[in-house]
Design a protein around this nucleic acid. Sequence first.
DNA 1: CGCCAGGTTGTTG
DNA 2: CAACAACATGGC
Length: 257
Amino acid sequence: MTTINRITRVIRPNPKTFTLITIVEKLEKFFGKQNWWPLLKDGECLYLEENAVRTKNAAEKWEIMLGAILTQNTSWTNVIRSLAALEKMKLLTWDAVIHCPEDKLALVIRSSGYYHQKAKKIRFLAEFFRDRFDGKVEDLDRLSLSEARKGLLSVWGIGPETADSILLYAYDRLVFVVDAYTRRIFSHLKLIDKTADYEEIRFFIENNLPADVRLYQEAHALFVALGKTFCKPKPVCENCPLSEFCNCSELMTESAH
DNA sequence: CGCCAGGTTGTTG
DNA sequence: CAACAACATGGC
């Protein structure tokens, strides 16, 4: 995190001058370290410093993948119940899932919503590792980044965000995760057009942040934190840590005068 | 009660 | 390819 990359290209110009790393630093100062991805411990999902900095083992990688699927358009609190239920039923491991009937799996993950679809997605992902890596979850790491990404995207139910979450948080690969929060925040900051597609936003961020996996992991988590608190569908700009960079607040101030 | 949540797929014009 | 429906539970 030594270089400060300037924003070289904007889809819609924001008159204020700032860099993405400045934004991330502001967010971290405000929200503190996020320590993603959370891992299950004693029936809870904990954001531990050690989870954030160490390489995850195969079991932890698999748990992150399950969480990445379960949290699709679903709040994390609902996902925790499902993960805890899976653990209780001894269904948290790849080996258990590959042998578990889909309808049984569906009932266990019921609390995270879309549970029939998600059970199918989890089964397809388990079969992907069976067919391509003989069940060795850690062996996805043998592939290049683009091959690994292509492989995950070929699985039914794994789209770009889920694939990138898996790559960034389970495998520590250098890919930025673009989600609804990221899109909304960057749109409010007038850095991207609302119609910009996933890859366009991903490349924009990757081209303007220092290439550092831990930074990517932390930055994405911080965007989620901001999206949940200030940069909501109806933005709450009062006391927003990014107000000095954002046109939303300028408009508010102007209209107040 | 209505809206929203760390998306993806399938269908339609 | 853009827009839309379907998928579903739980929190506020």
